[in-house]
Amino acid sequence: MKAPEITSELKNDLKVLKMRASLDPKHFYKKNDRDGLPKYFQVGTVLDSPIDFYHSRIPKKQRKKTIVEELLADSELRRYNKRKYQEIMSEKAAYAAGKKNRKKKKFHN
Rank of each mutant, 00 (worst) to 15 (best):
M89R: 06
D35S: 14
L77F: 05
K30L: 04
K106Q: 04
K39E: 05
Y85I: 00
K2R: 07
S90Y: 09
Q42T: 15
S49N: 15
A3P: 02
L71Y: 04
K15M: 01
D33S: 04
D24L: 08
Y95I: 08
E9S: 13
A3K: 10
A73M: 05
R102L: 04
E9F: 02
K100P: 09
E76H: 13
D48L: 05
N12E: 15
A94K: 15
F53K: 12
K30P: 02
R34F: 05
N32V: 00
D35F: 00
I67F: 07
Y40P: 00
M19K: 02
K103Q: 11
A21H: 00
L17W: 11
K64E: 08
K100G: 11
N101E: 12
D13S: 03
Q86G: 00
V16S: 04
K31H: 11
S22K: 13
S49V: 07
G44N: 00
A93D: 06
K103Y: 06
Y95P: 06
M1I: 07
A21L: 00
S22T: 08
K11R: 15
S90K: 04
L17P: 02
K11I: 02
Y95T: 07
H108C: 11
A96Q: 15
L10P: 08
E9R: 08
N12I: 06
Y40G: 08
S56M: 08
E5T: 06
E5D: 08
P59E: 07
K18R: 04
S22A: 13
T7Q: 11
K11E: 15
H55D: 10
Q62K: 15
N109R: 05
Y29R: 11
K104W: 02
D52A: 15
K61G: 12
T7E: 03
Y85E: 13
L77C: 02
Y40D: 00
Y54L: 10
K92V: 05
K18I: 10
S22M: 01
I6K: 13
L14F: 01
